[in-house]
């Protein structure tokens, strides 16, 4: 039946083409927003981000304590959610602990995106030896487990904010580079890149203006995905005691500090776990719908 099933649909042959050419297709974000799961994802992520951003501003006015002040004895049901292992107010620490996590995660993701997409586009565009060097270098980095690499770097350089951001950013880069390279190599064969080449447009400009805008779909998906991983990685490192350092408030750190009293005073663990879970699920939902939205653009091309 292969003769029946294969219908060549050249772009100019399908009857819908004319209509499609006349109407502007809705943008990537509008198409994403049309999906129900995107709305749910945005609501979930938005709620957690709101808590994280507004939380530090509310202290000590809302709870009566700052995040490092001692409010009573350890693991007592004082205040709304009780006290933690050192007798600090859990709600205050929860409200104060999100922003740093989010900022670090965002910075790490941003760094990874910049490094990864630059390396990926360069590899796709130049090809040849440079391509091989970049991609094999990627493979070497990929061979190291992300967390082990981070542990190593932090033990050597010390648990500082910039180390955390750089290390996580660097471990993201090879994964982003792969996605970028495959998306970019499809765009680079197009004639408009050859035309830019013909007009001797500087190479960085070709990458920035001709290639990058045409691969934003896959890159946005990657951005969402890497953001989720960054949050998880920073929370895990903090849990292991290598991320944020006490007495700073941090969600990952809180889980570690309070897990010994899980049965007595569970809120110290439950609150940060819940926040991280909602954030991760929410941003995954957004990523998913972004992926679907960008896939429909590819199809209609």
């Amino acid at each position: 039946m292969s003769i029946i099933e294969s219908q060549p649909t050249t772009p100019e042959e399908s009857p819908g083409t004319v209509a499609r050419e006349v109407e502007t297709p809705p943008g990537l974000f509008r198409r994403m927003l049309r999906q129900k799961q995107a709305k749910i994802g945005i609501a979930m992520t938005g709620a957690v981000v709101l808590v994280a951003v507004i939380g530090p501003l509310l202290l000590p006015w809302a709870t009566g304590y700052t995040s490092t002040e001692f409010s009573g004895r350890p693991f007592q049901p004082d205040g709304v959610f009780g006290t933690d292992n050192l007798g600090r107010d859990i709600l205050s620490r929860f409200l104060d602990g999100g922003l740093r996590l989010l900022i670090y995660a965002a910075l790490a993701t941003g760094l990874g995106m910049i490094l990864g997409s630059a390396a990926g586009m360069l590899a796709a565009y130049q090809g040849g030896t440079l391509d091989s060097i970049i991609m094999r270098g990627n493979d070497v980095l990929l061979a190291l487990p992300q967390l082990v690499f981070a542990l190593l770097a932090i033990t050597v350089l010390g648990p500082q904010g910039w180390v955390l951001v750089t290390v996580i950013g660097i471990t993201h880069a090879p994964r982003i580079a792969r996605v970028t390279r495959s998306a970019a190599s499809a765009v680079i064969t197009e004639d408009f890149v050859r035309a830019a080449e013909m007009y001797a447009v500087p190479r960085w400009k070709i990458l920035a203006k001709d290639v990058l805008p045409n691969i934003t779909g896959p890159l946005m998906v990657e951005l969402g995905l890497r953001m989720t991983y960054s949050i998880a990685a920073i929370a895990s490192l903090s849990f292991l005691g290598l991320g944020l350092q006490p007495p700073t408030a941090g969600w990952g750190l809180m889980i570690n500090e309070n897990r010994i009293a899980l049965t007595v005073q569970p809120w110290g663990v439950i609150l940060p776990v819940l926040a991280i879970a909602v954030l991760t699920v929410g941003s995954n939902l957004i990523t998913d719908s972004l992926a679907r939205a960008s896939a429909t653009v590819e199809e209609s091309k």
Partner: peptide, 15 residues
Amino acid sequence: QYVFQSPFSSLNPRR
């Protein structure tokens, strides 16, 4: 100056 074969590929869709 050179004009390419396919007008569907020779113009950047984002510009």
